[in-house]
Design a protein around this nucleic acid. Structure first.
Length: 574
RNA sequence: UGGGGAGUCGCCAAGUGGUAAGGCAGCGGCCUUUGGAGCCGCCAUUCGUAGGUUCGAUCCCUACCUCCCCAGCCA
């Protein structure tokens, strides 16, 4: 039912906004194309580190990397930045590939920074021979001390002027595993007094006797990001290397290595990373939520991960449209969650099949309806899409309606059912509340109504207007379903806004998950995992992978806009 | 404090010398057998602040203020 992009096909069936609005990155590319730079070629890359799952912030980068290349007929590689074996795992590379494809993109080349370890090693030897790199025996602590501070220049390492021969010998022995982790590093010889800290003889290689997810035990020295990233771009002939703002400081080093090596001049551009209200985006924090069991996993529907959003029922189209609606600038901003939700609703409204489900059931007995009669009511599957057709829903004497749709004492502007009042049952009849049945505590447990036989939907005499239409299910035919109602994972717009001594965990929303047992219409009997529906008047829901033929499980993707809730809220605040 | 980046409506964001686009949110109204969707309208005399240049400045100049990034052998 849902038109998800298939791996191998090009994106993008957008629902609205253009894929790439004008922005400074796009302008830079147009400029380069105009001047004939790189022979009019555009090539980008998406370079995730496989140390966690992709999140909505990555989606923005992916849409930019792939979208921009696609717009100008270029290529985009997926390259795993796997230079730190202590944090990277195969599980993550697989999850990342799945998520990129789910989002609707297919890479041209699939690479790993580790593919370039040998080349990087040879280039390091060249830099040593050129007198531009040296083996340093300082410990990590000493290296920090020698680096100086933001305002004071650093001091040269006592090992800075070793002979080329000694450096060559030592570096080879580092590679051969003769030295312990942390005992030595290979450093670029640049300028310990540079105001740009990344120029103060940056570490190029560290010793790590660690098994690597791809190279196994072939290496015990691993290149640092700054020594690997630009060269990897260069090797792949990337023309426009797009990354986030915090790498601005690294751009000079990126260029320095490329210049020293005299290799293809890839160019780095920085844009603002996406931040969203009510969530955290750092992989470190997301990892912690997972490891401490505060969520059910990386794909918990409350997580801002692509796998979490997928499970929640968000669509790739909605995420892409959201990303396209975002600005690309150098401002550090925080986008409101409502903007993402708008695009989720927009896409689901067009594509989700309507269905009736009562989340918090209240029994209704139609006192003047024949005891054993069952009528088949015809319902429209999607008013936004005539081709979706219609279906039949059983109607009978005993029904369930939403508890919220009945008030014994109706507040002002309340149009739904209350004693003596009428409402229409969607695709059914107009009913009138005659009396209520209460339990020992005085709670209304049953509502007795009469129905108007002339008001059957679609009938010749069905045009009588009533203030409201509510949804319902036939008690005898309804199916039970577990429904997981999600709210934001954090209670504050900015989860990091905490008291002294606390951290973001303190802002976890205790009500981010509420589990209900709902009554749903029988057509949902064989609903397949992943299928998305609109429960009329309630919101969008999708079938969770936990769902089985015997026990339906739905996740609430997002509620519908609720004007009544707003009116009532306002009345209470007044 | 040194270096780098940024400050335009509640949020995101165009515009970059000629008198403030758009989206989200919000607020009115229309329509409606989803209080959904849709449609219409409203929503910055003002562009961090203070000076200056100019016939004219958000766009140029000067100073100041605020925020973000950099002192991992993380990326």
């Amino acid at each position: 039912m849902n038109s998800e992009a298939t791996p191998g096909t090009a994106p993008v069936e957008s629902t609205g906004e253009p894929t790439t609005k004008s922005n400074f990155l796009r302008d830079a590319i147009i400029q380069d194309l105009a001047t004939g730079k790189h022979g009019g070629r555009v090539q980008t890359r998406f370079p995730p580190e496989p140390n966690g799952y992709l999140h909505i912030g990555h989606a923005k980068a992916i849409c930019l990397d792939f979208g921009l290349a696609d717009e100008f007929g270029g290529k985009t590689n997926l390259r795993f930045d796997d230079t730190n074996p202590t944090k990277e795992e195969t599980e993550y590379v697989e999850a990342i590939m799945e998520d990129v494809r789910w989002l609707g993109f297919e890479w041209d080349g699939l690479f790993y920074a580790s593919d370039y370890f040998q080349q990087l090693y040879e280039w390091a030897i060249k830099l040593i021979k050129d007198g531009k790199a040296y083996v340093c025996d300082l410990t990590a602590d000493q290296t920090r001390e020698y680096r100086g501070t933001l305002t004071e220049p650093g001091k040269d390492s006592p090992y800075r002027n070793r002979s080329i021969a000694e450096n060559l010998d030592l570096f080879e022995r580092m590679k051969n595993g003769e030295f312990a982790d942390g005992s030595r590093t290979l450093r670029a010889k640049i300028d310990m007094a540079s105001p740009n800290l990344s120029f103060r003889d940056p570490v190029m290689y560290r010793i790590l006797h660690q098994h690597h997810h791809r190279t196994g035990d072939a290496w015990c020295i691993y290149p640092m990001y700054d020594y690997a990233h630009g060269q990897s771009d260069s090797i792949e002939q990337v023309t426009h290397s797009i990354c986030t703002l915090e790498f601005d400081n690294n751009r000079h080093l990126y260029n320095w290595f490329i210049e020293q090596l005299g290799i293809f001049p890839s160019q780095q551009f920085e844009f603002d990373r996406l931040s969203l209200t009510y969530t955290v985006m750092s992989k470190r924090k997301l990892l912690r939520l997972v490891q401490e069991g505060l969520v059910s996993g990386w794909n918990d529907p409350r997580m801002p991960t692509l796998s979490g959003m997928r499970r929640r029922g968000y669509t790739p189209e909605a995420i892409r449209d959201f990303c396209a609606s975002l600005g690309v600038s150098k401002t550090n901003g925080i986008t409101q969650l409502q903007q993402l939700e708008y695009y989720v609703r927009q896409h689901l409204n067009k594509h989700a099949q309507r269905v009736m489900a009562v989340l918090k059931p209240l029994k209704v007995v139609l006192t003047n309806y024949p005891d054993d009669l069952v009528e088949e009511m015809e319902a429209v599957n999607n008013p936004e899409d005539a081709s979706a057709g219609t279906r039949k829903i059983p109607f009978s004497k005993v029904l369930y309606i939403e508890q919220d749709d009945f008030r014994e004492v109706p507040p002002p502007k309340y149009y739904r059912l209350s004693p003596g009042k009428e409402v229409r049952l969607r695709y059914g009849y107009i009913i009138k509340c005659e009396s209520v049945v209460k339990d020992a505590d005085g709670n209304v447990v049953e509502v007795h109504c009469t129905y108007d036989p002339d008001s059957r939907s679609g009938g010749a005499t069905s045009n009588r207007k009533v203030k409201a239409t509510i949804h319902w299910v036939s008690a005898a035919h309804a199916l039970d379903a577990e429904v997981r109602m999600y709210d934001t994972l954090f209670a504050k717009e900015n989860p990091d806004d905490v008291e002294e001594g606390q951290d973001f965990i303190a802002n976890l929303n205790p009500n981010s998950l509420e589990v209900l047992t709902a009554k749903v219409e029988p057509s949902l009997k064989d609903a397949a995992a992943g299928a998305r529906y609109q429960f009329e008047r309630m919101g969008y829901f999708c079938v969770d992978p936990d769902s089985t033929p015997g026990k339906l499980v739905f996740n609430r993707t997002i509620g519908l806009k609720d004007t009544w809730a707003k009116i009532e809220q306002r009345a209470q605040n007044a």
